[in-house]
Structures are given as structure tokens and as C-alpha cells.
Amino acid sequence: MTVAAVLAAGLTIYALVAAVALPRLLGRASWTGRAPRLAIMVWQAACVSVVVSVLSAVFVLAVPAPVVGHGLAELFAQCAEVLAEGPGLTAATALVGVGVAGALVARLAWCAVAVLAGARAERRRHAEALTLLGRHDGALDAIVVDFDERLAYCVPGRQGKAVITTAALRDLSPDETAAVLAHERAHLRGRHHLVLAFGETFARAFPGMPLFERGRAELARLVELLADDLAARRHPRVLIASALVRLATGRAPAFTLGAGGESALARVRRLLAPAPPLGRGERVTGALAVGVLLAGPAVTGLAPGLASLLAHHCLEFLSF
């Protein structure tokens, strides 16, 4: 039991430290802008890892190692009686554990459903209004809306659409328009709204947690950088940058209030003076980090069970 207690404490401490330290560590890292796709995966893995480590801590405490060992042995050897012979769950700890884990998972699931369903309903409403107000331009493959503010956006979903206003079309050169629409289609094709929904779900489920709050903002930023990079495969970076500037300037007050502009300036600078992409070594390190973040807590949680399995059931396996 002491091993389990130590592991549970370790997992809990990791969850707490990671929730506070990881956003600082990752938020300050400059490599994220050089590899937005990898950075998105690292942020998502970090969010998942904190939740899984709490679940693992509960699991380690609530389920005695021999039960896990027997459970796995049963799985491997298909031996049903083993479980009956072994020590069962202690009712009280198991109940508390299941309660905590269940509440955590239920909260996340509830928020995920609320975020996805809410966004979907809003999008459907918006798309419906667009069928009245916009017209599909076959050459651009986008919905054009008569409006005298320069706007471009996309309505994600199964039949995602890029939308652009007549004012934007008037002020952008054809090449700039193509670059903007390529950026929007990169969002649509990459299903970036699901990445945003992921960040939204964690931030909404556990408000005030630095990792999740920062994660939501970073995911939103990184998704834009990724779409810029994907658009830049076919369009000159300088055109994306100049389109950004043209769409950003000279807006009416109702469209210029609010925050979020720093990232636009950073985007322009990044488009004009791109840093070299990450080297292979750095990418491998990043991928390993994702793996450790995802698998680490779960493996730690299962460790006593695995040890028990090896200690008590190895001979059974060998005798087969």
C-alpha cells in the first residue's frame, strides 16, 4: 500500500506542478512558432496528461495492486477464478476513487458536449442566415457577402465554407484574396475548430487552471500560425502578410474593439521573417515529449499492478 500511496502522491504533485509550471514553460518557448503543429500536440498532450495523472492517482489508491495484477493475468490467461481468489476492492476507498474519477470525467464530457453542440447550433444558424445574405462564388469557392467591412472567416463543419465580404474583395488584390482563402481552407481541412473546442472544453471544465486557460489561448494562436504556414505552401508569405494588414486597418469602431491583436502583429512579423523550421532532433524530442506526457501518468498508475502481475503470475505464464 505504501508504494501505491507514494505513487498517488507523486501523480498528484505532478498534476499540480504541471498545471502551474507547464503553461509558463511552454508559453515562453519560442520553438512553438517554428513548429505549430507539434506545439498544438504538445499543448493538448499536456492538458490530457494532467487529467490522466489525477485519474491514475485515484486508480492507484482505490484499486489494490494484486487486483490489477490478477485482472491483467485474467486478460492474458483467460483464467476467471484468479480474480475471485485475490483480495477484492476495499469498498470505501474504491467508492471515493470512483466518485472522484467519475466526477472529473463527467465534468469534461459534459463541457465537451456543451461546447461542441453549442458551436454547432450557432454555426447552423449562421449558415442559414448566409444562405439568405450571401452568394456562392464558384471561381473563389467561397461565400461572398455584400458588406462594407473587410472580413474573412470560415464556418467549420461537415460542409465548411470560407466567407469573404465584398469590401474585402474590393481592397485585396486577387492574389491576396487567394492567399486569405487558402488560409481559411487550411482551417476547414485541418478541422481546426476541433482543436479550439478542445481548448475551450478544458478551460470551461476547470476554470482558473493556468494550464487550461493558457492552453486555450495558445491553441487559438497556434492554429492561426499553422493555417498561415499551410497557405504559404502555395502562396507567397508576403501576400498573406499584406492581406492581414489590409484586412486589419481602417475598420469601423464596432469591429476594432477588443483584444487579440498582438497575435496579428506577431503573425505579420513571422510571415515576413520566418524562423527556420525545427531540425529533426528537435522534432523527435517534441514527439517524445508528447508520448511521455500521454503515457507517463497512465503507466505510473498501472505500475504496481504490473509489478504484481510479474511477481505473482509469471510462473503461470511460463507453465503454459
Binding site: 450557432e122 454555426r123 479550439l196 492581406a243 486589419a248 486597418t249 491583436g261 496579428a264 502583429l265
Partner: peptide, 28 residues
């Protein structure tokens, strides 16, 4: 909506203050 419920619509560009827009122009 793109500001507070990001998963609904994805804008090419979030809202900007005039100062930020000026800085953008200077950068270009």
C-alpha cells in the same frame, strides 16, 4: 462570437485596436 466562443467561427483576423493596426502597417 469568434472572440468568446472560438469553436464556432474561425476568423482570419481577430479584432484589432487602431494602434495595433498602425503597427501592422509599419511592419509591412
Amino acid at each position: 462570437r469568434s472572440g468568446n466562443q472560438a469553436a464556432t467561427l474561425v476568423h482570419f483576423l481577430e479584432r484589432l485596436t487602431p494602434e495595433e493596426a498602425d503597427a501592422l502597417e509599419a511592419a509591412l
